[in-house]
Design a protein around this nucleic acid. Structure first.
Lengths: 242, 242, 242, 242
DNA sequence: TATGAATGAGGCTTCATTCAT
DNA sequence: AATGAATGAAGCCTCATTCAT
């Protein structure tokens, strides 16, 4: 999808990941990398909640273990911080396709797993989704200045392509399916579920966003994708099998 | 969908559409409603481009035919203006389902028309899409204070429901399709196409967003929805008919 | 000279020049032009004392009848204020050549008067001199963005040229004197007297800068210029006349 | 003059002039004096370009071979560094009068040589001139705290005095010429040529500051000084000799 | 109904400087 | 003798908003 299909967490990093210089419990005073991470994690929260112009450097600093001055020391300015947060957001959700071990499943099961995984992954990473929304509001201006974000998402397409090819080879999938488009479709359904939850549930009620509703949506998203990809005869046999 | 399925325009209203209070050629000096509309149209542009905190009252005032003071006179404060813009955004895109005259088409054609229309409508109203994105960033806080927005979207669901029922009655559609969910799905695919164009095309190239790509996407979105809704045997006959 | 040969004052403007809206003694509250002048006069003092980067907006605001915010309202930013101060400095010292009525004096007397006037004028306007020094430190970058400053100084050259021509016509002045160069020379001697007073008097004592020293310097500057311009025979007769 | 009449260079010292503490090719790591000089030379450039408050410690440090901390280690604080730069500026341009060997020339030739030398020397040392301008902006506050600067300039006056006395003894110079004043005059004309080049050329064109203009100015400055000093009859004979 | 002038509060950023090693 | 990390204080500037007419 737009973002990266697979796992990873965006929640604020636990501080115990920071390598202390001593074995004492007291956090090391000079730990540049820890300070950086601390700032980034707070900033991700602020930016994802309030947007680029809505976020307050003062607020970020206040919630940090260090001072406002340090933010400028490490990130230059507000946009620099935002860009780093964006990069980290994309970076954290990267990878993970391999964890799914799609190759070891038959194509139909693999595609279903990928759909459901993506849907769930997005719903578990609202901060990431919000960062992507915000970046889109800014016309993707900042990610274009990032060298680390670009080729980060090719693996998602490739994993999907491999599944598609296998399914086509075995005759269960239609042949005229474009992997990029399919990725786009899975992304759209999974992304929208998080990005537009607020307005949609206000307009139409929150039934779809309660646990049962989400489970149903997730299942139906996979259904939709499969029915789109499967050859018609396969759909028939699947249905009669139910 | 999240928004309202159907037509309407959001572009800045042409000023000559404003009915002057006098018949003189000189632009009407006292035309409260015209002033309001002028402000709203400029504000919509500013808010949709820059978000709530990113938009500047000064900038809106400068692009308006009236003064900054008038904004406060008519809308109280920035949030009041934003809320009015949001309401207008939802209001403008409302209605239009009836223009489609879905009732006069057979269910399959009706559903296809609805899908393609929604897709195109969204792509033609980026300002509206952006307003919805922004409102979602704000957790839908402002639309909840609006009385006019709430019941605005029921018609969309009802139109869809009527089509579904007809299709189920004639045996071409599956019976366990939830109209709200289907609306959600159509919305997701149509909304994402606009909302995430910037990030998606940066990550994966802009092939899907060029004219041919959009036409293909639009067609495939309708395909996807139809294959999801059609009974398996119908899919088979559709395919062999191709 | 570099600056403008003639009179004008730079001291802080007296507030009674501000036209009050009423006849009461209490200063009018809304008097944009007065506010502007007030800011400019304080700013001139601050900039001329501390330079562009050395001056403090806060300090200027504190010494003003209005607030810091007003400075930005009227002048945009610090550089904008500086540029306005510079323009005002040049503008205030402009004109005045006509007051000297050089045309009514014989060439020798006229040139002497011009020299002595310039010398005294510069010594009475240290703030202006300092602004010019500061602007030179900045390579004249700001005056180049000013449309009002250029062409302000031609009259000085022209007045000088007229005197020269008359003197050459009557045979008292040498013929190969370039008015621009002569202006440069008079300027140099008058400007340096103010600009370098601090360092010079520290290095060589302040005798030249005490009242008698200044009177002597002024006289000798005029002597020097005259001896440079006069034909040799004229110098002889002048000397024997002493 | 204000500054010191004679030669010396201010350009950044070439690093290979620094005597290394070891004979290895690798640049000496421990060379306190070299580090000091390196800092001073960079600082001179920064201060002379930007003034005291305009110069940036960070920028100086960045351009130095050592770190910011070293600046504080060697010079205490920014003002301390500035003062050292100022002292070095005055120190570098000192001496050199003797190189002129004025005693071996007849008085007229000696005075002319001194004038032209001073003019050229100033024009070749703009960084020094700018330091003096800056110090004057600061009312000479810092040089007063320097013990090395004060008695640095007497030789200039003395050299000039000797020339004057010889000329007076031989009857070519006027008797009522004050050497200090004459030094002031030569300084003024030579200093202004550099200090006010930016503003003057903006106001009146840069003709005087192009090579030919400078040559002419230099010659005329010497002329002016000589005509001021020479007895009238000497001027007559000089002119007829031309 | 309309407006140019004014502004308190708070935003982002930079500075010279010092700390801990 | 040397340094990367850290910082309090203060700088400049912008914002939504209100005042006086």
């Amino acid at each position: 999808m737009d973002t990266v299909t697979i796992s990873g967490t965006i929640e604020r990093m636990s501080q115990d990941a920071v390598k202390p210089t001593t074995k004492t419990a007291k956090p090391a005073k000079r730990d540049p990398e820890g300070v950086r991470r601390d700032i980034l994690s707070v900033a991700m929260d602020e930016f994802s909640q309030n947007g680029l112009s809505g976020a307050r450097i003062d607020e970020i600093a206040a919630r940090t273990r260090t001072s406002k001055r340090m933010i400028y020391y490490y990130f230059g300015d507000k946009e620099g911080l935002y860009q780093n947060v964006l990069e980290q957001a994309y970076g954290k959700v990267r990878g993970g396709e391999s964890d799914l071990e799609l190759d070891e499943l038959e194509p139909v099961a693999a595609l279903e797993k990928l759909c459901r995984f993506t849907f769930e992954h997005h719903s578990r990473n609202p901060a990431f989704i919000r960062m992507v929304m915000i970046e889109n509001i800014h016309h993707g201006r900042h990610m274009q200045h990032s060298s680390t974000i670009s080729n980060l998402n090719r693996p998602a397409i490739e994993a999907l392509e491999k599944v598609l090819k296998r399914g086509q080879a075995s005759g269960v999938f239609r042949t005229n399916i474009n992997p990029l488009e399919l990725h786009w479709q899975i992304s759209a359904l999974s992304f929208f579920n998080v990005s537009n939850a607020a307005t949609f549930s206000f307009l139409f009620g929150d039934a779809l966003f309660r646990p049962e509703g989400q489970e149903t949506l997730s299942r139906h998203v996979a259904d939709m994708v499969l029915r789109y990809v499967l050859r018609a005869d396969q759909i028939v046999s699947r249905e009669t099998a139910d």
